[in-house]
Write a protein that binds this DNA or RNA. Sequence first.
DNA 1: CGTCTGCGTTGCATTTAGTGCAACGATATC
DNA 2: GATATCGTTGCACTAAATGCAACGCAGACG
Lengths: 317, 317
Amino acid sequence: MQVGDSSHFGTTVTSSIDTKLSQTFLLTCQSGSMRAAAEALGIEPSSVSRQIAQLEAQVAIKLVERGRRGVRATEAGRLLLQYLHSQKIELETVMSEFDALRGLRRGQVDIALGDGFISDFIGNALAEFSATYPGVTYRLQSGSTAFVEHQLCEDLAHFGLAYNARPNQGLQAKARAGQPLDLLVAPETDWATLPEPISVQALGQIPLALLLPGFGIGALVRDAETHHSIRFQATVESNSIAVLRNFVRARMGGTILPAFVVTSELADGSIMRKTIDLLEFGAADATLLVRPGRRLPEIALKLMDHLCRRMKAMGRG
Amino acid sequence: MQVGDSSHFGTTVTSSIDTKLSQTFLLTCQSGSMRAAAEALGIEPSSVSRQIAQLEAQVAIKLVERGRRGVRATEAGRLLLQYLHSQKIELETVMSEFDALRGLRRGQVDIALGDGFISDFIGNALAEFSATYPGVTYRLQSGSTAFVEHQLCEDLAHFGLAYNARPNQGLQAKARAGQPLDLLVAPETDWATLPEPISVQALGQIPLALLLPGFGIGALVRDAETHHSIRFQATVESNSIAVLRNFVRARMGGTILPAFVVTSELADGSIMRKTIDLLEFGAADATLLVRPGRRLPEIALKLMDHLCRRMKAMGRG
DNA sequence: CGTCTGCGTTGCATTTAGTGCAACGATATC
DNA sequence: GATATCGTTGCACTAAATGCAACGCAGACG
């Protein structure tokens, strides 16, 4: 029995877990295989294997089951993952307090974006915000609405913006802006003189630039086509909002988008909006989602506040 | 503005803090200077300096103020220390759950021991417990009662054993065993026939082996000398309980100790105890202390339970 | 039934980063 | 103002982490 001896133990007791090892372990469990984690980390699979083996030796318990298609966390591994997650949350809190100490001159905000068009919205809203807080890094990940919800539930993003999101899971809508899909056309064209609301039949006569069905908006438009048994003239299909915008400004036809995407063009008069006589287009909205109970960095809160105000300002304008 | 890029940042954003660096930082703040931390870690002061500088670079904020006599944590440093402490607590929880998974075949219990004599008590009580749970490591640190309290308040020990502890601070006494200081003598000697309780005058006639004043018990005895204006015959003074015990068994005289120190000798009849007619000797007790609210590893709880039962069993025996 | 593809693991040569040593600069104390 | 103590920096060196290649293993497929 050893008394007052803190340096010598049976096998080597770790009073703490090495960060590099645990991060590798975390990424491996998330990606499901060592090779995937290795690629993500830009290192060799052998290093991942050794790091995990070393981590297991330190905690003296098996953390992953080596299976046929990759690895799966053991009971102990799940415990450790849970711990690492809580660590990450706590560390974020500390880091945000550091940001506050620095006078908000540094920091990072993770945002999950629904459908591609929102990135344009962010491009505008964020540009303003970024001017106020230079030095802040924004990590934007875009994907489907389901992707946004997943990112939030896993605490991989501080908040998210999604189109037509229903707060099904443990998510809360901080702000919801009615964002009907309108017809956007150039003012000098004949389409600009059509009486509002634009009927479905009239819409069918206009050459349109539409988003691909992979996007929520694109899918919504296609749904309308089938439900009302009409066929739009899709002159252009794209995955880029910029393409649609240029299509309109070139007077080649119209497009169907939420108005806020072209805020600046509406302001300077280069594009005008016209309401469409379709219930499903009018009910669409954009939602700012958060996971309740999560403590966010100060900058993230400020940015959220900024976005909320902006969304409410243009809510139904 | 970067979208979907998570690998490239301004200066290098750390989503987590390197363990080695943070541990060095922690130890440096605790010990008050880099050189002290370096000695404790068995490395050079230059390494400590570099590690802290590196940590500060990673979080991009000054963590310590370099002063004349060592270093002091800055505001940010204190935040980080607080974080590291909570990390340690959470990690201990995880580790204890690992222990549970292993079926309690491994683990570590940190114990703070008041005055040296307690280490003998542990040596006995722990021997039994250790037989039931082999593979468990016990980290025993002994010092003054104040030292024990400090260790507990800083969560450096799971529980503590102290002599004459008053739960002044946020500490709780899990068990308290009356442990009066008795006169211990060999049965075959004349002193064994003295009538109980032994008077102070009679005590003055007996050659005694006493603990050095550095120990709580030793100090208690010396206090009694001054308060009652008597003088004991201190034939032997030592910092070792074993020396005192052997002194008695060699029939050289008596000693003043709590009876539980010589449990086995009392049982086999090689030493006998005699009550002393002194209020301050009778009121002394041993206390098992914990900091309420701290979640302890399962093994620590089991050992505490074991000790509590043992203490109560011999409480006044 | 053998091949083939994916996985994790191991041995060895190389590179990287961490360390020790020594000298230096700064700062309170006497 | 001399001095002792502490943190910092430059440089040579050592130890640890990595990359590369080959291997063992299990399921998929012809």
